[in-house]
């Protein structure tokens, strides 16, 4: 589109101009208009000023002091993951499949169980079809998840049914995200962001299980 003094560029076009997304001809046309139209030139200047200010905002903001105490509480006594050898990780993953199935079977037989959680979609076939980096993430997280999962499963009757329902609904959402990340990784194994995404999903699951465990009465 050409612009004369009667045909002003749209806001989208001004944005494309400052983002350098116009064709050379489109850019030249708009520059010609801006040279003749103080109103549009003013809009462009305001837009560029906004972008300059945005890019120079403070890179750091002082956080509330309680963040570190929360982090410390959650990591104290736990070693970082991901240091074991790959054959050991693979063995742990296989063991997890077996244990996870056994726990599920045990839950199904428990008469006093308020609600029976289906085994998470991410647990079976742990690591199968995933790149090596993702397999390590898979196995590492699932080993920790298993501990919390077992503890929760053994004492779930002590939780109110509505609490169990909420926890299970949240777990299903997270398990779906884990499933999606695993599928995406199977299609794009070299994508490190997807490995991070998978790990972030597991992290969310861990946190949910940890919070659910905290709801259990002290023994």
């Amino acid at each position: 589109m050409t612009h004369d003094n009667q045909s002003h560029p749209s806001f989208d076009e001004l944005n494309d101009f400052v983002d350098d997304r116009l064709t050379p001809a489109g850019r030249l046309d708009l520059e010609t208009h801006l040279a003749l139209c103080p109103r549009c030139a003013g809009d462009r200047d305001r837009l560029e000023l906004l972008l300059d200010q945005s890019r120079s905002l403070a890179a750091e903001v002082e956080p509330p002091a309680e963040i570190w105490s929360g982090v410390h509480q959650r990591i104290a006594g736990r070693s970082p993951l991901g240091r074991r050898r790959s054959w050991l990780l693979a063995a742990a993953a296989l063991l997890l499949v077996a244990v996870s199935s056994a726990v599920t079977a045990l839950l199904v037989r428990r008469p006093q169980t308020v609600a029976v959680r289906q085994s998470a979609p991410a647990a079976p076939l742990a690591g199968v079809g995933l790149p090596v980096a993702a397999r390590a993430v898979d196995a590492d997280y699932q080993a920790v998840i298993r501990e919390l999962d077992e503890s929760l499963a053994q004492r779930r009757a002590q939780l109110a049914p509505e609490t169990i329902a909420k926890v299970e609904a949240s777990l299903r959402v997270v398990d779906e995200a884990i499933g999606e990340a695993r599928h995406a990784l199977a299609a794009d194994p070299a994508n490190r962001d997807l490995v991070d995404l998978l790990a972030a999903s597991y992290e969310r699951k861990l946190e949910l299980l940890r919070r659910a465990s905290e709801l259990l009465p002290a023994t």
Partner: peptide, 28 residues
Amino acid sequence: ALRLTADRRDATELTQDVFVHAWRRLGT
């Protein structure tokens, strides 16, 4: 976190999660 969530409580939780996550994944 604060800019993306525009909420101090969410940003605090998210920042905690990021560092806990980082701790667990240091091996990678």
